[in-house]
């Protein structure tokens, strides 16, 4: 799957899985921080991280590690896409 489509799928998954009603997935910046209170951040919290990890595993068949290892993966949509792309089996479907 090309990276643009993967990112767009991740954005839709974030909005659906975390019930971000009224949020247009396309309006999420690829590089914007997902967590924390910084300006431009999506403002997600630890409970969201757990739910998102389950959603990604269900959708893409890829496990997100727990704890501190998850931090860089959850940095942004781009980081998540890179992790999923890197962890995918060869010729894996999308």
């Amino acid at each position: 799957m090309d990276l643009t489509r993967l990112k767009s799928e991740i954005k839709t998954l974030i909005v659906d899985e975390l019930n971000l009603q009224g949020k247009d997935p396309a309006s999420i910046d690829d590089e914007a921080p997902l967590f924390g209170e910084a300006a431009g951040s999506l403002g997600l919290d630890s409970l969201d991280a757990l739910q998102l990890a389950i959603g990604i595993e269900e959708r893409f068949g890829i496990r997100i590690p727990e704890g501190d290892e998850a931090r860089p993966i959850f940095r942004s949509v781009s980081a998540l896409a890179a992790h999923i792309e890197g962890a995918r089996p060869m010729n894996g479907g999308g």
């Binding site: 899985e17 975390l18 019930n19 409970l47 969201d48 757990l50 739910q51 389950i54 595993e57 269900e58």
Partner: peptide
């Protein structure tokens, strides 16, 4: 259906 590890953390509370 999906096993314990796929339980929804957001739903539980």
């Amino acid at each position: 259906e999906k096993g314990a590890r796929m339980a929804s953390p957001a739903e539980f509370p």
